[in-house]
Simulated scan of single mutants.
Amino acid sequence: MTEIQRYVAFSDDPAGGNPAGVVLDAAQLDDAKMLAIAAELGYSETAFVTGRRGAAYRVRYFSPLAEVPFCGHATVATAVALGPGDHLFVTNAGEVPVAVADGVATLTSVPPAVSELPDDELTALLAALRWATDDLDPALPPRIAYAGAYHPVLAVTSRQRLADLDYDVPALKALMTERGWTTVQLVHRTGPASFDVRDPFPVGGVYEDPATGAAAAAFGAYLRELGVVGPDATVALRQGDDLGRPSRLTVRLVAGEPGVRVSGNAVPIVE
Rank of each mutant, 00 (worst) to 15 (best):
135 D>I: 06
36 A>S: 14
123 T>I: 05
129 L>R: 07
150 Y>C: 08
146 Y>V: 06
115 S>V: 14
127 A>Q: 15
181 W>A: 07
91 T>K: 13
170 P>K: 00
65 L>N: 13
105 A>N: 07
61 Y>I: 04
30 D>N: 15
155 A>Y: 01
96 V>W: 10
185 Q>V: 02
124 A>I: 06
167 Y>L: 13
157 T>C: 11
2 T>F: 02
211 A>L: 02
106 T>C: 13
86 D>Q: 15
58 R>Q: 13
160 Q>P: 00
32 A>T: 14
14 P>C: 06
188 H>D: 01
247 S>W: 06
225 E>I: 01
125 L>N: 09
9 A>E: 06
92 N>H: 08
155 A>F: 11
19 P>I: 08
51 G>Y: 05
98 V>L: 11
265 N>D: 14
5 Q>T: 01
75 T>I: 09
54 G>P: 03
118 P>I: 03
159 R>G: 15
196 D>E: 15
234 T>Q: 14
142 P>S: 03
215 A>P: 01
66 A>C: 10
264 G>K: 13
113 A>E: 13
143 R>S: 03
107 L>C: 11
66 A>H: 12
183 T>A: 13
205 G>S: 01
44 S>P: 14
185 Q>A: 14
190 T>E: 09
228 V>T: 14
123 T>A: 15
245 R>H: 14
10 F>C: 06
130 R>Y: 04
68 V>R: 09
121 E>R: 11
87 H>S: 08
255 A>S: 14
84 P>K: 07
93 A>T: 11
181 W>R: 08
36 A>R: 11
244 G>M: 05
112 P>R: 10
213 G>V: 12
191 G>E: 00
242 D>T: 12
224 R>Y: 00
114 V>M: 06
40 E>C: 03
102 D>A: 15
13 D>W: 08
200 P>C: 05
16 G>E: 12
109 S>V: 09
251 V>N: 08
216 A>E: 01
87 H>T: 08
184 V>M: 09
231 P>V: 08
268 P>E: 06
244 G>D: 03
149 A>H: 07
103 G>F: 10
193 A>P: 00
59 V>P: 07
55 A>C: 04
43 Y>H: 11
8 V>K: 00
157 T>W: 00
146 Y>I: 03
113 A>D: 12
146 Y>G: 03
88 L>D: 13
24 L>C: 05
123 T>M: 03
67 E>D: 11
77 A>V: 09
215 A>V: 00
67 E>A: 15
247 S>F: 07
5 Q>S: 10
6 R>P: 03
256 G>R: 08
259 G>F: 09
112 P>D: 01
83 G>F: 09
137 D>T: 02
138 P>R: 06
91 T>G: 07
230 G>K: 02
198 R>F: 12
262 V>R: 06
270 V>G: 00
135 D>W: 12
33 K>Q: 15
37 I>Q: 02
81 A>N: 06
94 G>R: 08
23 V>S: 05
261 R>V: 05
269 I>C: 09
189 R>S: 09
187 V>H: 00
47 A>V: 04
47 A>M: 01
